[in-house]
Nucleic acid binder design. Structure first.
Length: 877
DNA sequence: GCGCTCACG
DNA sequence: ACGTACGTGAGCGCG
């Protein structure tokens, strides 16, 4: 029997839209719904072996149901713009694939599906209807199967319904399903139903009386009385609803099975669409590059014989392009994976004559060839003596530069995004096992994972290089990001010494005070409760104590510091709560928190991540050493526990207002540049110029306001944000901004040009070519679009500053090593570098820091730095 | 796992 | 009318 697959277009598109995370191609087109639709389509076609295929869509025009009932809405709920724009796109894609699109004025897609399904069933076809709408179950028949995709725990399963399945799940036949719907109504379709009859009552009534007509025949006996009364009063509604709910199966639709005959979906036109929409994995199905299913399987060969291994390594050395991954973690090497041909990879597990140091040594040698691509170079550096001068290409970092907005850059991500291959991830293959355990217990999966890693590094290398070059990021990649990998590894490896006893003592002091404050707060509120629970705290303050503060968050009252701070003068307990918050924060995150990271060498080895931020900054984790307290005196004390090793001191150098200087340079604003050339205090001179007053007459308040405006400019100014920050009206904030832009007109035109560029190109760039896509600018949502505008203004500034300090870091680290100094770069905090400096090298290091930070970039204003020394981090700031 | 809060630049 | 300043990471409470 030949098979016909019919798809409910809007319904599946809608499901896909909400089920697939936001996607945009580089033109800024939203594509997630189309992507999800195609995936469902291909999945069903793979499973069904369909012979015919057609997709039905609703039209905008009113349908016969509107003629019956004015308030009828049909299945078209208001559609978000992001989805709406994908409807015509979806139709174009289907047309390009040769799939007929069925529409009929005056009818909904349901009616088209119903009509054709019943008609073709009669003609002897096996019909499958794919929809996300349960209402379609009424069409289920001997040879009509309804498929509803259902998502549970992240995975989508398709449930199939023949009539017996409908009965099993809903106790009623497909025909009776209509009657149930008529009784209970449907909010989304605006089918009125009978008031006060819900799904349960409706189902039991239909089970008992089969249909509406029969219910009314036996109305006297109907129970419960509530239902009886409602049915009595609303007979007209019930009968109208029955007509509205019934899908039409004899609509005047012309349809020829010949048009729906499935021949070849994979047309060149459709392929062009897949490329344009950047659906790599779908494009790959169309025949280019590596195929998901139909292509040749990769061979992952386990090599355990020493001489075979050695021969392969020698062969690899002669290749001009190889991919590798050293599978090493927790201080030990498990295997090396190597790939230098399209057919697959070789995996060399540690064991026998192939010792850890042999494997690591071979990895090192192959890295030194200068034509190796790896997935994560920094991870392998503890096992390989590589440094500046060894050019090893890192695929993760390359993928990050090409799209810094992603969460992960694993081999599976790169295989998907660059190669159009869908491959199982590490978690899919070895769950949460370590490499060591996986290699021992799940050798097949481990081998496959390792093989995929090396193959991905190998195959993605060239396309990644080409894309970086095409997007103007070759220099950024080669001269900044790749060398930085070594710098960051050195910092991680070096770590920073922390005095555990002092940290514990500091924590003890905090804990004592916390206990006191807790007691006082409980007494003052007359209740023992968890002060750290915003929920409990909000209820006590704003309900029990009747403090007026109003709701602010989705979940309840806001108890954030800025809210409480306003209330503190009137309620003594609020001050205590703020103090309590400060103490507990310091205790849990810093005193106790940092303590757990001190290693046996007495040092904390934080990780510096290179592929996290959207702007190009680095981030620090486990623990985060970029947010150690400094603004409040009590918190600042904690810096005293960070100390240099014996015979060393700390030198701390930070850029003075690097972001504003970057702004002055990039905008080319003459007055701002001039301001930097003449004045020491940029915020004061801003106040002087903006408010037209002599510099020496600027009041502290005026300076503070000017400083806030300067910050605002860098953040992508908004009157609202500035007004919040300064606690002034939006009108006043607006005036400040206007005055600022009058004073520095080129800053205004520069920021405008950034937004315009972002709107046209979909991204902004830093001075060094780093890109940040800004998809939010395409949003129909005002808030999101405004966010996009601020991002377009901020990212080039923040990103350029990040580029500059990265250059400085590399040069400082490289010079310390090349000049055989013992001093080491140990931390970076966005505009600040901390060096553990040998006492006798102090002057040299000061000179190096000063020179390299100053000359990291050549701007129209000088890059000035402030430097301090000390015997701990507290003193060195 | 997510929202809130708060530490930093 | 909408409801925000930009970029991060960690700990806690809660469902």
């Amino acid at each position: 029997m030949e098979k016909l697959v019919l798809i409910d277009g809007h319904s599946i598109l809608n499901r896909a839209f909400y089920g697939v995370p936001n996607l945009t191609n580089s033109e800024g087109l939203h594509t997630n719904a189309v992507y999800g639709f195609l995936n469902i389509l291909f999945k069903v076609l793979d499973e069904e072996k369909a012979d015919y295929l057609a997709v039905a869509f609703d039209l905008k025009a009113p349908t016969f149901r509107h003629k019956m009932f004015d308030a009828y809405k049909g299945t078209r709920k208001p559609m978000p713009e992001e989805l709406h724009e994908q409807v015509p796109l979806m139709k174009e894609v289907l047309t390009a694939m040769g799939v007929p699109i069925l529409t009929k004025e005056g009818y909904e897609a349901d009616d088209i599906l119903g009509t054709i399904a019943k008609r073709e069933q009669k003609d002897g076809y096996e019909v499958t209807i794919l929809s996300g709408d349960r209402d379609l179950l009424q069409l289920s028949d001997t040879h009509i199967r309804i498929c509803l995709p259902k998502t549970s725990r992240g995975t989508t399963e398709v449930h199939n319904y023949y009539p017996e399945d409908v009965i099993r799940e809903y106790q009623v036949t497909p025909e009776q399903f209509i009657e149930v719907k008529a009784l209970m109504g449907d909010q989304s379709d605006n089918i009125p139903g009978v008031p006060s009859i819900g799904e349960k009552t409706a189902t039991s009534l239909i089970v008992q009386y089969q249909n509406l007509e029969n219910i009314y025949t036996h109305l006297d006996e109907v129970k419960p009385p509530r239902a009886k009364k409602a049915l009595e009063e609303h007979r007209d509604l019930a009968e109208l609803s029955l007509k509205l709910a019934r899908i039409c199966v004899d609509a005047p639709i012309e349809f020829s099975m010949a048009d729906a005959k499935l021949e070849n979906l994979y047309t060149p036109e459709a392929y062009e669409y897949m490329k344009r929409l950047e659906f790599k994995s779908i494009a790959a199905r169309f025949g280019e590059g590596i195929r998901n299913e139909s292509g040749p399987e990769k061979q992952f060969v386990l090599v355990e014989d020493f001489s075979e291994a050695d021969a392969l390594f020698e062969k690899a050395k002669k290749e001009d392009h190889i991919g590798m991954e050293l599978l090493a973690e927790n201080g030990s090497v498990t295997a090396l994976a190597l790939s230098f041909e399209e057919t697959g990879s070789y995996i060399f597990p540690v064991g026998g004559f192939m010792t850890e140091s042999y494997i690591a040594g071979k990895y090192e040698e192959l890295c030194r060839t200068g034509h190796a691509w790896v997935l994560d170079l920094k991870h392998s550096l503890p096992f390989a003596k590589l440094s500046y001068g060894d050019t090893v290409y890192d695929a993760g970092v390359a993928a990050y530069l090409l799209n810094p907005l992603k969460d992960t850059y694993g081999y599976d991500d790169i295989a998907r995004d660059v190669l159009g291959m869908t491959v199982p991830s590490r978690a899919d293959l070895i769950k949460k096992m370590s490499y060591k355990d996986a290699c021992a217990k799940e050798q097949d999966n481990f081998t496959r994972m390792a093989g995929l890693m090396a193959y991905t590094a190998f195959a993605a290398g060239k396309p990644l290089s080409e894309r970086l070059a095409a997007e103007g990021m070759e220099d950024l990649y080669r001269n900044i990001e790749l060398p930085l990998i070594y710098t960051l590894f050195h910092m991680e490896d070096e770590g920073i010494a922390v005095r555990r006893e002092e940290l514990t003592a500091y924590g003890g002091k905090l804990k004592k005070q916390i206990a006191v404050l807790e007691k006082e707060i409980w007494e003052m509120t007359g209740q023992e409760f968890n002060i750290n629970s915003p929920k409990q705290l909000g209820e006590i303050l704003f309900e029990k104590m009747q403090i007026k503060g109003g709701k602010k968050t989705k979940t309840g009252y806001s108890t954030a510091a800025d809210v409480l701070e306003k209330l503190a003068p009137d309620y003594p307990v609020i001050r205590k709560i703020l103090d309590y918050r400060q103490y507990t924060k310091l205790n849990s995150t810093y005193a106790d928190g940092l303590g757990t990271y001190i290693k046996e060498d007495g040092r904390i080895h934080s990780r510096f991540n290179q592929t996290i931020t959207a702007t190009g900054r680095i981030s620090s984790t486990e623990p985060n050493l970029q947010n150690i307290p400094i603004r409040m005196e009590l918190g600042r004390e904690i810096r005293k526990v960070f100390v240099p090793r014996d015979g060393f001191l700390f030198l701390d150098a930070d850029y003075s207002q690097i972001e504003l200087r970057v702004l002055a340079h990039m905008s080319g604003d003459e007055r701002l540049i001039e301001a930097y050339k003449t004045a020491q205090d940029i915020h004061a001179i801003t106040a002087s110029q903006v408010f037209h007053i002599p510099l020496n007459e600027v009041t502290p308040l005026q300076r503070r306001n000017a400083k806030a405006v300067n910050f605002g400019i860098v953040y992508g100014i908004s009157a609202f944000g500035l007004s919040e920050d300064l606690s002034i009206s939006r009108k006043e904030a607006m005036e400040y901004i206007e005055r600022y832009f009058e004073t520095y007109p080129q800053v205004k035109s520069f920021l405008d040009s950034l937004v315009a560029h972002a709107k046209e190109q979909g991204y902004v760039t830093t001075m060094f070519g780093r890109r940040r896509p800004v998809p939010e600018l395409k949003s129909s949502n005002f808030m999101q679009r405004s966010f996009g505008e601020r991002v377009a203004m901020n990212s080039p500034i923040q990103g350029t500053a990040a580029d500059i300090i990265k250059i400085a870091m590399i040069r400082v680290d490289e010079r310390l090593r090349r000049e055989n100094l013992r001093s080491r770069l140990i931390l970076q905090v966005h505009d600040e570098l901390l060096i553990e400096t040998a006492e006798d090298e102090k002057e040299t290091v000061m000179k190096i820091l000063s020179e390299e930070m100053h000359h990291a970039a050549s701007l129209k204003v000088e890059l000035e730095i402030d430097m301090h020394g000390g015997k701990n981090w507290f003193e060195a700031k």
